[in-house]
Simulated scan of single mutants.
Amino acid sequence: MSFTKTTEQASHYNHLEKMTVAELLRNINNEDKTVPLAVEKGLPQIEILAEVAAKRMRNGGRLFYIGAGTSGRLGIVDASECPPTFGVPFDLVIGIIAGGDSAIRKAVEFAEDDTTQAWKDLSAYNINENDTVVGIAASGTTPYVIGGLQECNKNNIATGCITCNAGSPLAKTAQYPVEVVVGPEFVTGSSRMKAGTAQKLVLNMISTTVMIQLGHIKGNKMVDMQLSNHKLVDRGVRMIMDELEISQEEASALLDKHKNVRKAIESYGNR
């Protein structure tokens, strides 16, 4: 059964080189406005995948993202932001890109075409049945990602995906597919644009929802965040002040003692 890559279809705009800067910006913005609406249509699928990941992580599992090119980089960005934001170990959410870490900055030729390497990359982390693997590929045809999910399926590991074409081979491989169809790109085939934005939005939703489900947010605050700079220390002090209704000096002293917003708040209630 054939399927159409809408991400590869011709742009709705032509003669881009003849447009003014204002016209280019306005037209790109008009296309970008359609992305959240496309994501909205995928909410039921996103909900299922987030629930699966959260359930497995409660039982000691991890969340893996695998992808190539832009998709791989987006997964790494989301994974790398979980420890400082939610105070979780660096190896709880893991992003893997085809071609290895050097591919984060510079494309590695044909890395995405290797059907066996993703499983090798995952195996280096002793992946097991408690884990969840999400394959990210705008096209839905990336061999590296599909091959990885196929091996995960054989080994009873939960698989999801984020793709921007309907009915793709990747979506058919994943147990819990997420399809966000954004249509043709402003620059034909440049899936770092709308497709990349859609993938980033979905990743934000999955990781944030999972971390809230795992208890790493109190109220609406990042009480488990890492205090890795002065801005975050100041934010932590304000959180404690607001939660406990105490002075800045008291809040600062508590945070300095406990080095963690949650622990500072809990210690105050246990006095």
Rank of each mutant, 00 (worst) to 15 (best):
D131S: 02
M19H: 11
M57A: 03
E243P: 07
K154P: 02
V202W: 01
I246A: 05
N27K: 14
D113C: 03
E47Q: 13
T208H: 05
H15N: 14
L227E: 10
T6A: 12
E179C: 11
T7Y: 07
V77C: 09
I46S: 13
N128A: 05
N128C: 15
Y144T: 11
V187F: 09
K55W: 03
G140Q: 07
G189H: 04
N165I: 08
V52A: 03
A103S: 09
E245P: 09
E151L: 06
A195E: 00
G95Y: 04
V223T: 15
H15T: 13
I240K: 07
D101S: 10
H15D: 15
A50Y: 04
K200Y: 02
K18N: 15
V182C: 00
P89M: 02
G147F: 00
V237I: 15
D131R: 06
D121Y: 03
P36M: 05
D224F: 13
K172N: 15
M19W: 14
G61W: 02
M241S: 04
P84T: 03
V93M: 03
I146E: 01
A251T: 06
K259Y: 08
P169R: 10
C152H: 02
D78S: 08
P44M: 05
A198Y: 05
S168I: 00
K5Q: 15
N128Q: 06
A98K: 00
L232D: 00
E8M: 14
R26S: 13
Q213H: 11
I136C: 00
S2I: 12
V233E: 07
K5A: 13
N229T: 04
K172D: 14
S267M: 10
E31K: 11
K263Q: 15
K194G: 11
T20V: 04
N14C: 12
C164I: 01
V181Q: 00
R26L: 12
L214E: 02
V88W: 04
V182F: 00
E31T: 12
